[in-house]
Each structure stands twice: as structure tokens, then as C-alpha cells.
């Protein structure tokens, strides 16, 4: 059992190390210009030298992601409840939701910037927009997938609609809610970066763009790595919350 866990942790690291080694060897062997492709070592050095700068730019991006995610959950879950429980709301809202989802978020970003300005609000709006859809779809699917037997049990006990929701439907949908949340939280990073690209004064996306325009590729790559780590960290946080909220599911949702 323990050995199995160790292997589970080690194999991905071995895979990563192999890729990094090949990359390092390639850049050194062919003497690749570091503006075109910096070596992993260059990126590490740039990350280390600019640690304070990167940290300062991480903070606003993290905030945009977390708040955008919370906004998506706070609005998405109730919308899913409405859509799952009312045929009329389902018919009214679902096509609108799908239409909304079909609009390319990158294309909407400049308009949102006009509405909300260069500050955090516009990033929040875009992060929310990309994260909202998976939350609604997965939660609604989960609520509809409540086992019929459990609903009949509640019915035979004359449970009120509110009791049915809180004691049967919602807990039974939790695995779906978390599946949606995990997708959503990684999407917020994309949303935040789109927002920062279109117009901003700070954030890792902003730093990446600036470093790129200055041909400081190692720093741009360092920002990219930090963004990926941010995404993984957020995913891990939601996965951890899932484990805590659903102790009965031994292997989480994946």
C-alpha cells in the first residue's frame, strides 16, 4: 500500500524530469538562442532572480481566480438548482446559457474591459464567464441524477421539498458539483490571463506580456510556469476540499 503510494508520486516526477532533461540537452546541444527557447535552467534562474517580482504579480492573478471561481460557484449552483427543478426555467435559461457559452470569451474581453475598466473587476467578470458554464452543467446533471429510489424514500416519509433538496438531492449531486468545480477553477486561470492580456497593470499575464515584448523570454517562461503552478495549486485546493466534504468517497472524483 505505502509502496504503491510512493510509486504514484514518483512516476509523474520521473516523467517530468525526463522531459526537462531532454529540453535542457536540446537547447545546449544546438545552442538555441534563449530568446527563441530558454533552457529549463534559464527559466529557473529567471524565476529565482525575479522571485519578488513574480510573487507581486502572482497575488492579483490569484485573487482574480479565487474570486472569479467563488462568483461562478455562488451564482452557478443556484442557477443549476433552478434549471434542474423547474421545467419552465430549464426551457427559458438553458438555451441562453448555451448561447452564452458559444460566444468566444477572448472576443468578449475587450467589451468587458470597456464596461469594467482596467482593474480587477474586468478580470473577475471574464474569469466568472469561463468558469460559470461547467459549474451549472455539472451541478444540474448531478441534481437530475439523484437516484429515483432515494426520492421515493423521501416521498414515502413525506419529506418537504426543502428537505428533499438539502438531505437527498444536494448531497447526492456533490460529486458532480466538485467535478464541475475542478474544471471551473482551472478555467479561471485562463479567464484571468485573457483579462490581463487585453488590458491591465499587474498580474502574471501582464508580466508575461511585458517580458515578452522586452524579449526577456526566460522571465516570460517563468511567468508561464508560475501560472501553471497556480492552476495546479487551485485544482489541488478544490480536490482537497472535495476529500474533506465527501469523506465517504475514498478515491475522490477521479
Amino acid at each position: 500500500m505505502i509502496l504503491d503510494r510512493v510509486f504514484r508520486a514518483i512516476y509523474p516526477l520521473i516523467g517530468l524530469a525526463l522531459i526537462l532533461a531532454a529540453w535542457q540537452a536540446y537547447t545546449q546541444f544546438f545552442a538555441v538562442n534563449r530568446i527563441i527557447l530558454p533552457s529549463p535552467m534559464d527559466v529557473l534562474v529567471a524565476s529565482n532572480d525575479n522571485f519578488g517580482l513574480l510573487l507581486r504579480h502572482l497575488w492579483p492573478t490569484l485573487l482574480e481566480c479565487v474570486l472569479g471561481f467563488m462568483l461562478a460557484m455562488a451564482i452557478g449552483v443556484p442557477v443549476a438548482v433552478a434549471v434542474a427543478n423547474s421545467q419552465i426555467l430549464n426551457l427559458t435559461l438553458y438555451p441562453v446559457l448555451i448561447a452564452m457559452q458559444s460566444v468566444p470569451k477572448v472576443a468578449v474581453a475587450p467589451i468587458i474591459l470597456v464596461w469594467f475598466g482596467l482593474g480587477i473587476e474586468s478580470k473577475l467578470a471574464i474569469a466568472f464567464l469561463v468558469a460559470f458554464f461547467p459549474v451549472v452543467v455539472d451541478t444540474a446533471t448531478g441534481l437530475r441524477a439523484t437516484p429515483k429510489g432515494l426520492l421515493e424514500l423521501a416521498q414515502s416519509l413525506r419529506a418537504s421539498p426543502l428537505q428533499v433538496f438539502w438531505k437527498v438531492q444536494f448531497p447526492s449531486a456533490l460529486p458532480f458539483v466538485f467535478a464541475g468545480a475542478k474544471v471551473a477553477v482551472t478555467l479561471t486561470v485562463i479567464g484571468a490571463v485573457i483579462g490581463e492580456f487585453v488590458g491591465s497593470n499587474e498580474g502574471l499575464g501582464n508580466l508575461l506580456l511585458t517580458a515578452n515584448s522586452q524579449l526577456n523570454s526566460p522571465l516570460a517562461w517563468a511567468a508561464l510556469v508560475w501560472l501553471s503552478l497556480l492552476g495546479m495549486g487551485l485544482f489541488g485546493a478544490v480536490a482537497l476540499a472535495e476529500r474533506i466534504a465527501m469523506p465517504w468517497a475514498k478515491n475522490g472524483g477521479h
Binding site: P147, G149, L150, E152, L153, V168, P171, S172, L174, M246, W248
Partner: peptide, 10 residues
């Protein structure tokens, strides 16, 4: 019920 119909989260 035919199946035990338990709530797996309880």
C-alpha cells in the same frame, strides 16, 4: 425497497 436504497454519504 427491493434495493437497500441507502445514502452513500451517510
Amino acid at each position: 425497497f427491493q434495493q437497500a436504497n441507502l445514502m452513500n454519504w451517510r
